[in-house]
Amino acid sequence: MTKTDDTQTFEQFRPDLLRLAYRMTGGQADAEDIVQDAWLRWHRTRTDDVRNARAWLSRTVARLAIDHLRKVKTRRETYVGPWLPEPVVTDVPVAHPPLPGDALEIAQDVSMALMMILETLKPEERAAFLLRAAFELPYAELATELGKSEDACRQMVSRARTRLRQNRPRFEATDQQHEDLLLAFAGAAQAGDTAALTNLMTPHAKLTSDGGGKVSAALRVIEGAANVASLVAHIAGTASALPGDIMPMRINGRPGFIVASKNAIDASYSIDVENGRIAAIYVMRNPDKLAHLLARSKPAE
């Protein structure tokens, strides 16, 4: 290939590589750095000897992501309060709910539900699952890349698929259902209406709030509709539960919203839905993880 061809080939696969790196690390900036590093390695490689560019690039990104996660392990272990992935803005609606086992859908899925499940896996397990499920990498190549036996790779992928089936929302909602529930939640939260908040959620709903130790946020996951409603209503009684302007935005492939003031974003909100009710609420308050959303929240000049 010529260098022009190399560049065109890389750019063709860049979106998938960014999604892979993001799902491995949970950070947009980290994903961009990893993909840039992969590009530099691709640029220095004799690409005429590469039979499958997509496979080569995905394996490279996965290896770099595993190295990154090993380096930040201590930082993750000492993180203050619950950890959530950086919210990412996704402008293109999902055509239909993600289907476990469907390589195309898994390759495009960056939903909070999937991200939270991936976070429970070890880096090698995460890489094995994504490379197999999304990039359809043969087990023999997985074994070589991860330094494991083929049987071990099959077991890792199987365990990840089982966890995915067990923990993903059982009944996906349409975009309209998401939007309706979000608007109802915002209204009830601002009013401090405990009964309305409770009715919007499944009995075992969870609220996860990530402040990173830099702003106020719950230091543990709040479980149970009544407990979540009480917390949100309490916040509304002491200050505005949703200060600033509420701006709808597609977050991680689903309708969500941010709460923005003139020069900052206070929080982003997204949800999982089961049986027409809110099953999980994800509140990002860590300013470091919200900074990249600020430009998206400003009108074009």
Rank of each mutant, 00 (worst) to 15 (best):
W83P: 01
P85W: 01
P85H: 10
P87N: 11
T90N: 14
T90P: 02
T90E: 15
P97G: 01
D102M: 06
E105N: 02
D109Y: 03
V110L: 14
V110P: 10
M112A: 12
M112L: 11
A113F: 09
L114C: 05
M115N: 04
M115F: 08
M116W: 07
E119R: 14
T120R: 13
P123A: 01
P123I: 10
E124L: 10
E125P: 00
R126I: 13
A127C: 00
L130V: 04
A133H: 04
A133T: 03
A134P: 08
A134K: 13
E136S: 02
E136P: 06
L137W: 03
P138T: 04
Y139W: 10
Y139D: 07
E141Q: 09
T144H: 10
E145S: 09
G147R: 10
S149H: 06
D151C: 10
A152V: 11
R154E: 12
Q155Y: 12
Q155S: 13
M156S: 13
R159K: 15
R159S: 12
R159I: 12
A160G: 09
R163C: 05
L164R: 06
R165V: 13
R165S: 11
N167Q: 07
P169C: 09
F171P: 02
T174N: 13
T174S: 15
Q177I: 11
H178V: 05
L181M: 09
L182K: 00
L182Y: 00
L183A: 05
L183H: 03
G187C: 14
G187M: 03
A188N: 06
A189C: 09
G192H: 05
